[in-house]
Each structure stands twice: as structure tokens, then as C-alpha cells.
Simulated scan of single mutants.
Amino acid sequence: MSERPPAATIRTQLLIPIHFPDGSTTTARVFTFDGLVDGREHLALGLGDRALGAPPADPAAPTLVRLHSECLTGDVFGSYRCDCGPQLHESVQRISAASGFLLYLRQEGRGIGLYAKLDAYALQDAGLDTYEANVSLGYDPDERDYTAAAQMLHALGVSRVALLSNNPDKARQLRRHGVTVARQVPTGVYLSTANARYLRAKAGRGGHTLDITAAERPDDEVVSADEGREA
């Protein structure tokens, strides 16, 4: 059963040029919101034709959407301990090509915050996996709530999505809040020796659709496995 959350409204929107370290560029229409249930400063980035404010070419087709949880260490500093930075880059490129939205959600460390995430890293260095570390600190394995994401999509007029994600919980939560997830579109698998245990935990304990075996390589280079991806 789905239950539509309280309405949020668009607060501001403006164009921002985006530049990645590899030299790729795009332009995003960035939206802020009033009325989000968690009170956090989440952003929506309209990419491709959505950056121009153009309506979708096919109104019946699901909108390509990525829910991306903030990761300072991966998104900004390029840490190889996770796959967040490469996933963010891939998502911006693919959504820019197809037109849609990237929701940048202020939910660091699967919802436990930056300092606690770094505490969890220390516990992982001592042998725990990423979920066990959160629990050891007194948190749930994953504390993220996507109610605000559903509010943002409703405010943007998006009710049917192709969800760019390997995480089935995102789809479940969006459906619960009145967003139709027509299909999930997997991202690449960005594997290195620094994040192998982390990705295996996401696949084994978090149920993420990650084919770790297909991406394994015997070095530190990040590798993207493209099997099963949609253009």
C-alpha cells in the first residue's frame, strides 16, 4: 500500500555549470525545496533537457532518476573506500544524456552522519563490515529514509521513474510513498582492493544488485563492469 507524503514545494531553481576532474562538463538546473519532512537541505539536479526546463519528449516514458546519498569522502575527495564518487559521475553523465533528475540527499554514512561514518571506518579497519560497524555504534545498518526524496519528485511533477540504482530499498520506499518505479537501472560496479569488502557487504547483506565476480581485478585500479546496464 502506498501513502503519498505531505506536499513539498519548489523554493528556488537556478542553472549551475558542473565540471568533473576528468574534464567532462554539463549544466544542471538545481532545485531547492520547502516542506521536506526531515528538514534537511536536499537538492534536485535537473539534467539534459530537464536543465533547460523542457518537458519530456515522451510524457508516458518513466523519468530517469538517481537518488544519491551525500558522501564527502567519495564525492569530493575521491576516496576508494566506497563507490560513491564514480556512481555520482556516472549518474550525472547518463542522466544528462537521457534527461532526468539526480536527487542529492544529505544522508552521509547511510544516514548516521560524517563523524559517525569515520568512526565506522575505524571499526571496519578492525575487522567489521560496513553494516556491522554501524550497528556496533548503536545505529541501524542503514538509517536512510527516502520520504523527502518522494516529496521532491512529486513537487517536480515526476510520478513514474526508471530508478538508476543497485539498491532495492530505494525502490521499495519510493513505491511506498506514491512514486511508481517502472524499473531499476543498475549502475556500473566500481571495484578496487580498497572497497572490495565494502561492495561484497552491500551485495551480500544489503541486497544490492552488484556482480562483484564480474568486476574483480587483481590490482588497485577502479574497474567498471558494464554487464546488464541500460543505455
Score class of each variant (00 low, 15 high):
Q173R: 03
R172G: 09
V179A: 02
L191I: 03
V185N: 07
V185C: 13
G188Q: 07
A171D: 08
V189M: 08
R175V: 00
P186K: 07
R183Y: 02
R160I: 03
R172C: 01
N166H: 12
H177P: 12
R160M: 05
V161T: 06
V158Y: 00
V185Q: 05
R172F: 04
Q173F: 02
T187C: 10
Q173H: 00
P168F: 07
L191T: 03
L163Y: 10
K170W: 03
V181W: 03
L156T: 10
H177Q: 13
L191C: 05
L191P: 04
S165K: 10
R172W: 00
R176C: 11
S159W: 00
D169G: 14
V161I: 05
R175G: 09
Y190H: 14
V161A: 02
G188D: 00
G188H: 01
V181I: 07
V179T: 08
S165Q: 10
T180G: 12
H177S: 08
V189R: 02
L163I: 13
Q184I: 09
R175N: 11
L164T: 13
L174Y: 02
L156C: 14
P168M: 09
N166F: 08
V158C: 12
L156N: 11
Y190F: 15
L156W: 06
V189G: 02
A162S: 15
A171I: 01
V189K: 07
G178P: 01
A171R: 10
V181E: 00
R175T: 05
L156M: 15
N166Y: 07
T180M: 06
T187Y: 00
H177A: 10
G178W: 00
D169K: 15
R183T: 02
A182S: 15
K170D: 09
L163N: 12
Y190Q: 12
V181S: 06
V189P: 03
